[in-house]
Each structure stands twice: as structure tokens, then as C-alpha cells.
């Protein structure tokens, strides 16, 4: 028994002694540093430095203290908007999941030609500017837009409906824009599940539903969570689409931050708003991962 094991699998000692094979862990320290240096520099100068400066600014204007944050708490407006931002991001994430899962499944499991077609349908919008897609929604939803014209012609309504500049329109348009970010991780997870597992289950008498429910779904969950988390975080900071498709009523945190940076030029307060949004987002992400890691099956969620 022990003999076969040693022959079949190389010992850990043997793996460690092998020079520079595929695993990054065996690269020398210098090489690793050189490889990550461009990314670290880019992050440092392009992201950490300016963002850090903005965030720190919120604690130092006019002098060190929490004045900007107190101001933020004084009016109910800012917390209302923060809450609304989370609500909308949540709605968008759920909608993306409900629409995205079947599409991801189709991309992974349909016959090649159909799968390719579905993939194209998912990717082409991803390569199209967010601006263009948001304007397309305006064309569809406006008072004299395509949807209203159709409903009027069908005689289902007598007065044009108010479709655009509503919260519903924002959720719909944002879902459309963010859908690929949900689909792609799920697609990767579903594709990684070997077909043999399903076949084996069927062989043992499981029905199609049962195979999906007990094999495919649990194994694709890491993809589902990765996709949802990505969509949720992107939705929290969305600026373009809500500004175009939503009216002044659907104000999100990003809109408020934009107002403070470019209109009132109150960068300290903009920094305070950004700090709150960032802290809320990080708290959420950490809490999400903690909950998931309690269940060992989802430990692969990044």
C-alpha cells in the first residue's frame, strides 16, 4: 500500500526540489518582485495615492477632526441616499442572477453553435460603451418612446406611461449593463463541472431536475457568489446609468460625490462621502465572505 503511494504520487520533498515549474510559489523572490512591480506601481500612483489623499482629506479639513462626518450625519439625506444605493445595488444583483444564471448555463451546456451565439450576445454588449447602452434605454422608455408607442397602438393604455426617470428604469438599465459581470463567473464555474458527474448521477437513477439541483447547482455556487459580489460592488459605485436613466429622485452615492467634487468643490466633504461608501462596501464584503466561509463548501468564493 505505502509502496504504491510513493510510486504514484511524487513526495512533497520532490515537488519542492523541482526548479521553476508551473507553480508561481517556486519563483525566486527577486523574480516575483519584478513581476508584480508594474502592477504595484500602477496601483500606488494611480489609485492608492489619489484615493488615499481624498479620503484623508476628509479628516483634515479645515483641521483634524470628524467635522465632515458630523455634517454627514446631521441631515437625513445622506443616510437615505446610502440606503437607497444599497437597495438598488441589491435589486440589480438579484435581477442579474435570475436572468444571468440560465444564460450562463446555456453558454456552458448548449451545443457548440448555439453556445457560441449566446456568448456573442453576452459579450457584444459588454464591449459596447455604457453610455450607448444607457441612451438606448432612454430611446425605449421615454414618453414618446418605443415601448409607449407600442402600448398605445395596442390600445392597452390611453396615456403614455411614465417609464423613464424612475427607480424601476434605473434597476432595469443597470441590470442590463452589469449582466455580463454576473454571467461570466457563473459560466466559468458551470463549465468546470465535468459532464461525467451528471452522467454518473443519471446512471444511478437521478432525474434531470435532481441532477441539476443536487449536482450542478451546488458545484456552480462559487461562481454565483463571485458574480453576485462583483455585480453588487460595481452597482454600488455606478454613476453614468443612474444619472442618465434616473431622474433627480433616484440619487445614488456616486451622484452625491460627483456634485461635491465638481459643483461645490467641497473636496473634504466628497472625501467623507467616499469614505462612508467605501467603509460600507468593505464591511458588506467582509460580512458576506465570513457568512459564506462558515459553510466550507463555498470556501472557494473570492
Amino acid at each position: 500500500m505505502t509502496v504504491t503511494a510513493t510510486i504514484g504520487v511524487p513526495s512533497t520533498e520532490a515537488i519542492r526540489r523541482r526548479p521553476l515549474t508551473g507553480s508561481a510559489r517556486s519563483y525566486s523572490k527577486t523574480l516575483s518582485l519584478i513581476l508584480i512591480a508594474p502592477l504595484v506601481l500602477l496601483m500606488g500612483f494611480g489609485f492608492l495615492y489619489p484615493v488615499g489623499k481624498l479620503l484623508l482629506g476628509s479628516f483634515f479639513a479645515p483641521e483634524f477632526g470628524l467635522e465632515q462626518f458630523q455634517r454627514l450625519m446631521r441631515s437625513p439625506l445622506y443616510l437615505t441616499v446610502l440606503l437607497r444605493t444599497f437597495e438598488i445595488a441589491f435589486a440589480v444583483t438579484i435581477a442579474s442572477l435570475v436572468i444571468g444564471y440560465p444564460i450562463a448555463f446555456a453558454m456552458a451546456k448548449l451545443p457548440r453553435r448555439w453556445a457560441a451565439l449566446t456568448t456573442v450576445c453576452v459579450l457584444i454588449p459588454l464591449w459596447t460603451s455604457t453610455l450607448v447602452r444607457s441612451y438606448a434605454w432612454i430611446v425605449l422608455l421615454q414618453r414618446k418612446g418605443v415601448v409607449n408607442a407600442l402600448l398605445l397602438d395596442l390600445g392597452w393604455i390611453t396615456e403614455p406611461l411614465r417609464l423613464i426617470y424612475t427607480e424601476g428604469a434605473v434597476v432595469m438599465a443597470m441590470t442590463h449593463v452589469l449582466l455580463p459581470y454576473t454571467i461570466l463567473p457563473i459560466f466559468a464555474a458551470v463549465r468546470a463541472v465535468p459532464n461525467e458527474l451528471g452522467q454518473a448521477a443519471s446512471n444511478l437513477g437521478a432525474g434531470t431536475l435532481s441532477v441539476f439541483w443536487r449536482i450542478m447547482l451546488p458545484l456552480s455556487l462559487p461562481g454565483v457568489f463571485a458574480g453576485c459580489l462583483m455585480t453588487f460592488i460595481l452597482a454600488l459605485g455606478f454613476y453614468v446609468t443612474p444619472a442618465l436613466v434616473g431622474g433627480p429622485r433616484t440619487m445614488l452615492m456616486a451622484t452625491l460625490i460627483g456634485q461635491q467634487t465638481t459643483e461645490t468643490l467641497d473636496w473634504a466633504f466628497a472625501g467623507a462621502l467616499s469614505t462612508v461608501l467605501l467603509a460600507a462596501t468593505l464591511t458588506f464584503v467582509v460580512a458576506f465572505r465570513k457568512t459564506l466561509s462558515l459553510n466550507r463548501g463555498f470556501a472557494g468564493v473570492s
Partner: peptide
Amino acid sequence: NNQMLLERWNEWNQ
């Protein structure tokens, strides 16, 4: 009154 105006305006919108 720039900040006050904007704040009241935002509040009204919400």
C-alpha cells in the same frame, strides 16, 4: 448659501 441650497434641493428631490 450654495451648500444649503443644494442640500435642501437634494432633500426635496428624495
